[in-house]
């Protein structure tokens, strides 16, 4: 036994040695590429002569530096190999954009210089932050209500075979209708824009959640039910302490999907009738043909979606620590 432990420890040790040897010998091409691109980008921004319409490069540089910082943190935590490649892609894109503008080939209105676009984040920061709050409060309310009623409703309906057989086919139809189809109608019918957006997000998230929950509850492993029954569990315990935890991973796994469709509906709705919010920001300035602000708005939305997706990922890992 003692010997076994020893050899196992040795194995672990030699593994570690091997791994560190590999790390020192291995040239991380992805990371090198990313850093070379970052350096070139910074060099171009700082040194290249600029046409007269280009504003201060401070915001652009700050954004690039922020990306580099996040990249370095993620990279040295050693979580994901693909990070370097994704970051390289972003740098390559920014560099191409910058060079295109410097070359003088770019249409100054349709393809604004990146310096000006990133400057918007500074100039319009109050507007953008307000837009974020407006959008997020609607998003959270719609998604929160949808998840709550979808999960609880699906739990109850799924548990009763008769109800399940009624609702499953019906929800299958409803949940496949893209909410964007009826968004304009809802915005027209509902008394306030906020109510309309919440309603649209609610339907975008509720129906798929409700359906997945019904299906899941209907197919709970018989063995799980039996082992709960022999412990004489009452109905609330069965529903909330057995079937709910059993089914929850399904819903959580769909969370990033639900979030995507909610975001889609929200920005869609905001372009129709809002007076604040992320989608509204983009829509308003595209009406004025202010493409600098439009592009800034689009980048802003992309960044927010990314951040929220990362948060959802973390949540998934925190909540579901078990596997079947």
């Amino acid at each position: 036994m003692a010997e076994y432990v020893l050899t196992e420890k040795n194995a672990v040790l030699s593994d570690a040695v091997n791994a560190s040897a590999k790390r020192t010998l291995h040239i991380p091409f992805g990371a090198v590429t990313a850093n070379v691109l970052f350096a070139s980008l910074a060099a171009v921004i700082l040194t290249a002569p600029k046409p007269g319409n280009v504003q201060s490069p401070a915001a652009f540089l700050t954004a690039a530096a922020a990306i580099e910082l996040i990249f370095l943190i993620v990279y040295f935590k050693g979580k994901k190999k693909s990070t370097a490649d994704i970051v390289s892609l972003i740098y390559a894109f920014l560099l191409a954009w910058e060079l295109f503008n410097l070359s003088g080939l770019a249409h100054p209105v349709l393809v604004p210089p990146p310096e000006n676009v990133f400057n918007i984040f500074y100039v319009n920061r109050a507007d953008m932050f307000e837009g974020l709050l407006a959008s997020m409060s609607i998003l959270l309310q719609g998604m929160g209500l949808a998840l709550f009623f979808g999960i609880i409703g699906g739990l109850l309906v799924g548990y009763v075979q008769r109800l399940r057989e009624i609702f499953l086919p019906v929800t299958k139809v409803i949940s496949t209708i893209p909410p964007l189809v009826y968004t304009p109608y809802v915005v027209a019918v509902m008394p306030t824009f906020r109510a309309a957006s919440v309603f649209v997000i609610f339907s975008a998230v509720f129906w798929p959640t409700f359906m997945a929950m019904i299906a899941r509850v209907g197919s709970v492993d018989e063995k799980i039910i039996d082992s709960a029954r022999v412990m004489k569990v009452d109905l609330p315990t069965m529903l909330f302490k057995v079937i709910l935890p059993y089914s929850l991973p399904e819903v959580i796994a769909r969370l990033s999907f639900s979030f995507t469709s909610a975001m889609l509906c929200l920005t869609g709705a905001e372009m129709l009738g809002a007076s604040a919010g992320l989608g509204y920001f983009v829509k308003k300035f595209s009406d004025y043909a202010d493409y600098t602000r439009v592009i800034a708005g689009i980048i802003y939305i992309a960044v927010i979606i990314t951040v929220l997706n990362v948060l959802i990922d973390l949540l998934q890992k925190k909540v579901i620590k078990w596997k079947y």
Partner: peptide, 12 residues
Amino acid sequence: VVFQHYSLFPWL
């Protein structure tokens, strides 16, 4: 009761 199949709750 102890079943033949493993009847523990996987989430606990």
